[in-house]
Design a protein around this nucleic acid. Sequence first.
DNA 1: GTCCTTGTTCAAAATTCATTGAACAATTGA
DNA 2: TCAATTGTTCAATGAATTTTGAACAAGGAC
Lengths: 123, 123
Amino acid sequence: MTLPHPDTDQISLSTVLAALGDETRLAIVGCLARREDMGGLVCGQLGTLCSKTNLTYHVAKLREAGVVSVRPEGTKRHVSLRRADLDSRFPGFLDSVITTAVDMPAVDRALHKLSLPEDLGDA
Amino acid sequence: MTLPHPDTDQISLSTVLAALGDETRLAIVGCLARREDMGGLVCGQLGTLCSKTNLTYHVAKLREAGVVSVRPEGTKRHVSLRRADLDSRFPGFLDSVITTAVDMPAVDRALHKLSLPEDLGDA
DNA sequence: GTCCTTGTTCAAAATTCATTGAACAATTGA
DNA sequence: TCAATTGTTCAATGAATTTTGAACAAGGAC
């Protein structure tokens, strides 16, 4: 990891809650949850959630809180949930949040394009 | 209920998360959880957490988010967790949060006085 | 009635947060 | 090399949040 991530044992619940207490960031987590079996996704795939600049800000918030892990891949940034760390620190918490977050309209909108073949997403 | 409380079905997860994403309010919830078998507690019993004025503000935030129920009892305000509503809306969520919140140092400090006989709390 | 307790209201101040646009850096691909 | 893609940095702005003290209101105890 090139970017700073908090150690598992120093992830604070109130910081995690504050990080998730924002519609945009909760939607980011919802998207990550729906792509968990694919190991996460790349920042750019969250383009419909907010502006590019703003996305950098929100993803950083989630990373600093210990909610997500960000790994540089060339010019891209691979983002994924810190599932194991959150589960060990706050058992049951992530699943209970995700159950609701995956159903957010913003998550549908963001992931819809990705599920379409080629680049016909905006057709 | 004299004070306005959101209906169960209109409790929003991101609002609840934002409400809990604050050390003071998380401590309030921790206190309520430790007194759940007594049906909650009264505002004044949270005196060590913050100023009286500020407590009014934080309790209102929790109430408006749907996390707690506030019932006037004479000049006092009885506060309790909306356990059934939260459980039905976000299964497992409250328990996962409470597990950590009840162990906050601020919760110990706040409840310590209450567990002592008479008013010898500050001895 | 007169205190005392409990909590609220209000306006102000301080702080923090979210959002934006312009300019930039790094990598990829032709 | 040149251009396109991907994301960051920075400064600024507007909005929301948190905190405070003074004054107030409603009940309870006496």
